[in-house]
Design a protein around this nucleic acid. Structure first.
Length: 284
DNA sequence: GCGACAG
DNA sequence: ATCTTGTCGC
């Protein structure tokens, strides 16, 4: 995997007993380097399919470019015995997934899926640094498709919140991040979002822009379906503008969580469940 | 200083 | 993230 010279501390042969503070300082440096390479505008020319129940694929009329057809979704599920039982056995304690949906079909058909079972995690989960734990797993799944010239290789991928920038830059793929909860950072609060969303309620718009106290635009909060009062959080990813990200999210929400993420989530959890505990170590 | 804190 | 029962609604 080409990591463009960005390696985790442990890979550079540094002491594995680095303190959490030292690790975080290293990770912050890497995040700063990745940020320099982040593209927050559209850098492609795509025709977006328009949702229709007829089964015929309509596209936005005036647009030129390639039809957006294959959209990926990634996720990592964890077993409850993450740190105890599973760690000592051969059972899987985690599962990374990559799914690809054909968004030109009315049902948003899943046309590809692959999994990566984990028997241990060498990277801890630290808030604000989620990507360092999950991105390496997902990069391998993407790289496997690329190496085999798989025709379903995603033109764009949905990721969990906080992974979009990191994974997008390292895989050089357009990404949109989706969160089910707000990451409290840069002055952003749950109650602040609720208030702004409530105020927007009457104006017809169903989303608000998330601007931190630093002035940085982190993404948007939106009600993805009519019935949901709890918003989803869309993060600015790589090579996709926020406006385009919102458009794309709107066209692939059968439920509150956009379908690529939802399928990646459901299928990784299912695959993990079938390959843990009782079946651990004895199943392929 | 303390608490809160995506997955 | 995961644990866990029922329950309410389309």
């Amino acid at each position: 995997m080409d990591d463009h010279g960005l390696r985790h501390g442990r890979d550079r042969g540094e002491s594995s007993s680095s303190s959490s503070i030292e690790i975080q300082n290293q990770w912050r440096e890497i995040q700063d380097l990745l940020k320099e390479r982040l593209i927050t505008q559209d850098d492609f020319l795509w025709k977006l399919p328009i949702p229709s129940s007829s089964g015929n694929v309509a596209v936005e009329e005036e647009e030129e470019g390639t039809l957006l057809k294959y959209v990926g979704g990634v996720d990592v599920s964890y077993s409850k015995e993450l740190d105890s039982a599973a760690a000592a056995s051969t059972a899987a304690c985690g599962c990374g997934s990559l799914v690809v949906l054909d968004v030109t079909t009315p049902t948003l058909q899943v046309v590809y899926q692959d999994f990566f079972l984990l028997t241990n995690f060498d990277v801890p989960y630290i808030p604000s640094f989620l990507a360092f734990r999950e991105a390496p797993i997902l990069l391998q799944l993407l790289q496997k498709m690329k190496n085999t010239d798989n025709p379903f290789y995603p033109q764009l991928s949905f990721t969990g919140f906080g992974l979009a920038c990191h994974l997008g830059v390292l895989a050089n793929i357009p990404t949109i991040g989706i969160g089910k909860n707000l990451h409290h950072v840069d002055g952003l609060t749950q109650s602040g979002v609720r208030q702004l969303l409530q105020a927007k309620d009457s104006s017809g718009e169903d989303f608000i822009t998330l601007t931190g106290s630093s002035g940085r635009v982190w993404g948007a909060a939106m009600r993805s379906t009519k019935g949901s009062c709890k918003p989803i959080y869309i993060s600015v990813g790589h090579r996709v503008s926020l406006n385009t990200a919102i458009k794309i999210v709107k066209m692939i929400c059968k439920y509150r969580v956009p379908e690529p993420i939802r399928q990646a989530d459901i299928r990784s959890r299912d695959h993990l469940q079938k390959n843990s505990c009782g079946n651990g170590g004895t199943l392929q």
